[in-house]
């Protein structure tokens, strides 16, 4: 299990709508809208590949998303396994 966080940036005024859609994705937790149109997202995923898929999904499937920027990833559990 990996834990990764990212900033999802939306078009102005669309953050709430994007937020609602993000909240529907399994194993994704959101931490609110900040500085206008930045959503903090934390995802629990199995491997890097799944993370790539997830970000691609958010970029392509959710309207009004401008960017997805990863900020943090935790590998600890994987190493200990």
């Amino acid at each position: 299990m990996l834990i990764s966080s990212m900033i999802v940036k939306t078009r102005p005024g669309k953050a709430e709508t994007v937020l609602t859609q993000l909240q529907k994705i399994p194993r994704v937790t959101t931490y609110g809208v900040h500085r206008g149109n930045n959503i903090i997202v934390v995802a629990e995923i199995h491997d890097i590949k799944q993370l790539e898929n997830l970000t691609a999904f958010i970029m392509e499937s959710i309207d009004d998303v401008l960017s997805v920027s990863p900020t943090y990833i935790n590998f600890e559990d994987e190493i200990q396994e």
Partner: peptide, 14 residues
Amino acid sequence: VFWACAQTETAQQL
């Protein structure tokens, strides 16, 4: 690297 390449434009906007 993957992200940086894929999202240069949006990162700049950010």
